[in-house]
C-alpha cells in the first residue's frame, strides 16, 4: 500500500476475494491479502508486482482494456459506483463473478481520490448444471486427417474447412479430453499469449 494514499478501507483485508485500490490516474496503490492468495493459485502477478502500475495494463486485449478504462473514467467522473457480472469458468465449475467499482472519498470533504475494485464470487456450480452437454457435430469439426483442432488457449475448436479459420466454443470438447484432438492456437490467443499475429489467416 502506498503510504501517501489517503484512503484504503481496512475492512478489505477481511474480504476473501481480491481487491485493489486505484488512484485518480488508474494506478494501483494497494491490494488486499486475498489478491496474493488468488494470484499464487492462478499464476497471476503478486501485489508487489502490480502496485504502481496501471490497472488497465493487466487487462488482456485492446478492446476489453479500452472498455474497462471507459468504465473507470465514468466512475471517477460521476463519483458513482458501478458493478458488472461475468462468467469465469473452469472445465468443471461454473463461476459467476461480480466486480464492483466504488469511488473512494476523502473525509470529510467527500473529494473523490480513487476507486476500489472488488471482485467476488457470487455463484458457483458444476459446469454441467449450467451448460448441459450434448453430442458435438463431429462432421462440423473433424478435419480430413481425422483430427479435431482445438485452441490450447481458449479451448474453442476450429470448424473444418478452408480458411479463414472459424473457431467455436463447444462445451463437450472442453469438458472431456480426447485423444483425437490436436491442440493448436487460434488467432486471438496467438496475439494474447505471444503478441504475434500470423501474416495471413491460416
Amino acid at each position: 500500500m502506498n503510504p501517501d494514499f489517503p484512503v484504503f478501507p481496512a475492512a478489505l483485508e477481511a474480504e476473501p476475494w481480491p481487491a485493489c485500490v486505484l488512484d485518480m490516474n488508474g494506478r494501483i496503490v494497494g491490494v488486499n491479502g486475498a489478491w496474493d492468495r488468488i494470484a499464487r493459485a492462478s499464476n497471476g502477478p503478486l501485489g508487489i508486482e502490480v502496485v504502481g502500475t496501471r490497472w488497465s495494463a493487466h487487462i488482456t486485449g485492446a478492446e476489453l482494456r479500452a472498455w474497462y478504462e471507459t468504465l473507470l473514467h465514468r466512475v471517477l467522473d460521476r463519483g458513482a459506483g458501478e458493478s458488472l457480472r461475468c462468467d469465469c469458468n473452469t472445465p468443471e465449475r461454473y463461476r459467476l463473478f461480480s466486480s464492483r467499482f466504488e469511488p473512494l472519498r476523502r473525509r470529510p470533504s467527500s473529494e473523490t481520490v480513487g476507486v476500489l475494485v472488488l471482485t467476488s464470487l457470487i455463484e458457483e456450480a458444476p459446469i454441467g448444471e449450467r451448460y448441459p452437454l450434448g453430442t458435438p457435430d463431429e462432421l462440423r469439426y473433424r478435419c480430413a486427417d481425422g483430427l479435431v483442432r482445438q485452441c490450447s488457449g481458449c479451448r474453442r475448436v476450429r470448424v473444418a474447412g478452408p480458411p479463414p479459420a472459424v473457431w467455436e466454443l463447444v462445451p463437450e470438447y472442453v469438458a472431456t479430453p480426447r485423444q483425437d484432438v490436436s491442440h493448436g492456437i487460434c488467432r486471438l490467443c496467438r496475439e494474447i499469449y505471444y503478441g504475434m499475429l500470423p501474416k495471413e489467416e491460416p
Binding site: S152, G184, I185, M196, P198
Partner: peptide, 13 residues
Amino acid sequence: EDDQDCREVLCSL
C-alpha cells in the same frame, strides 16, 4: 508440430 500456427510461433520465438 502439426499445427501451423503453433509451429510458426515456436520457431519465431
